[in-house]
């Protein structure tokens, strides 16, 4: 089976002047279509750094990230932005919605940055919002929503461009347990529909809902229960 995302021997070294800090070293990860993967580890283990690199928000110091067969090494800032827009959907702990824009406008936003103009953006955004159960809140401003609803909007926004992979960074970190559980359930439902999801978390309960778990320590993988795939 060909992975949709391959991280090959990636390293990330931060140059702090006199000292150099290695956040990730010689790390290999393959993510396959339909995977539901959690990346866990203690604080400073390199989880976020790994997410940034496979999310093409950051470039590895060494190694390469291949997405859908395209090597992203050496891509320009513009090309990386295009790939991010088309292939990756982000969900953040702090939601990062535009507070005074409507739910619909927040979900439409990634489509506005598409290289190829997307027809009927409103209909597409509405359909995705139905999928996350927010069809009644289309015209509400995002600052009028509860935390759980905000995260649903963020998930809808991540899904709207039909990316190859959803990257979620501590998606329940700012939610109470009830809303957290609802979001977990939503991720399970989405994965059951064939959507590839990667969750970066230090929450063991959240990690447990994933089918596969990678544990990081000091920038290296210490366990991957799906490596054999």
């Amino acid at each position: 089976m060909i992975p949709i995302l391959q991280a090959k021997k990636i390293c990330k070294v931060y140059d702090m002047g006199k000292t150099k800090i290695t956040a990730i070293c010689d790390l290999d990860v393959n993510i396959y279509k339909g995977d539901f993967l959690s990346i866990t580890g203690k604080s400073g283990s390199g989880k976020s750094t790994l997410m940034h690199m496979i999310g093409l928000l950051d470039t590895p110091t060494k190694g390469e990230v291949i997405l859908n067969g395209r090597n992203t090494k050496g891509m320009s800032e513009k090309e990386l932005a295009e790939v991010r827009n088309k292939e990756i959907g982000f969900v953040f702990q702090d939601f990062y919605l535009l507070p005074r824009s409507t739910v619909l406008d927040n979900v439409i936003l990634p489509m506005k940055y598409s290289k190829n103009p997307i027809k009927d953006m409103e209909k597409r955004a509405t359909d995705v919002l139905k999928l996350v159960g927010l069809e009644q809140r289309l015209q509400n401003r995002s600052n009028e929503l509860s935390g759980g609803e905000k995260q649903r909007v963020a998930i809808a926004r991540a899904l709207v461009n039909e990316p190859s992979i959803i990257l979620a960074d501590e998606p329940t970190g700012n939610l109470d347990s009830k809303n957290g559980e609802e979001i977990e359930k939503l991720f399970i439902d989405l994965n059951n529909k064939g959507i590839t999801i990667v969750i970066v978390t230090h929450d063991k309960e959240l990690a447990a809902i994933a089918k596969r778990e990678i544990v990081l320590k000091d920038g290296s993988i210490v366990s991957d229960n799906g490596k054999s795939k």
Binding site: G55, Y96, P110, S114, N161
Partner: peptide
């Protein structure tokens, strides 16, 4: 600043 970061994460180029 956060909005700029978000827009870039969602696919905005520096030029945008």
């Amino acid at each position: 600043t956060k909005e700029i970061g978000l827009r870039k994460a969602l696919g905005a180029t520096s030029r945008n």
